[in-house]
């Protein structure tokens, strides 16, 4: 089955990203396809490569990146939400004259249409939020 995931909350503040990650892993293990993971609201903060969590804690951003690489996941950060919150890729950096880019490996920034499209194409949409 084809599943789309939406994450509305940032890492560490709320359990949403942890739940979504464990759900995604379990779905992949069961042989399902995760057609897209869409990061919205503060969820866009899951895609910054500037976090340094304590050594004895889980690295939420890194494990999403790794899961994406291993399974060719499409991790999409909403551009409108990202611009508000300072999540910037190379293109956004140049367009908006910012001093850096901070999108972690395996993530890409794209429009809200990607969420709607995912909801149309997937068999299920599962939302993790506050």
């Amino acid at each position: 089955m084809k599943l789309a995931i939406q994450i509305n909350e940032g890492p560490y503040q709320h359990e949403a990203s942890d739940s979504a990650y464990l759900f995604t892993k379990a779905a992949l293990q069961a042989g399902h396809e995760i057609s897209r993971v869409f990061f919205y609201h503060d969820g866009v903060n899951n895609g910054t490569n500037l976090t340094t969590p304590p050594q004895d804690d889980r690295n939420i951003v890194k494990r999403w990146s790794e899961l994406a690489t291993e399974n060719e996941l499409d991790l999409v950060i909403c551009v409108a939400a990202a611009q508000r919150r300072g999540i910037v890729d190379q293109g956004e950096m140049e367009r908006n004259g910012k001093s850096a880019q901070n999108v972690a490996d395996g993530f890409r920034i794209s429009g809200l249409g990607q969420l709607v499209e995912a909801a149309i194409e997937a068999d299920r949409l599962v939302v993790f939020g506050d």
């Binding site: 293990q29 299920r124 599962v126 939020g129």
Partner: peptide
């Protein structure tokens, strides 16, 4: 249920309503 069971519930129903 565990996470595998969560996935099964998602698939066994037509849609999901998340009361956030």
């Amino acid at each position: 249920v565990d996470y595998a069971g969560f996935v099964e519930l998602v698939c066994a129903n037509d849609k999901v309503q998340n009361w956030l």
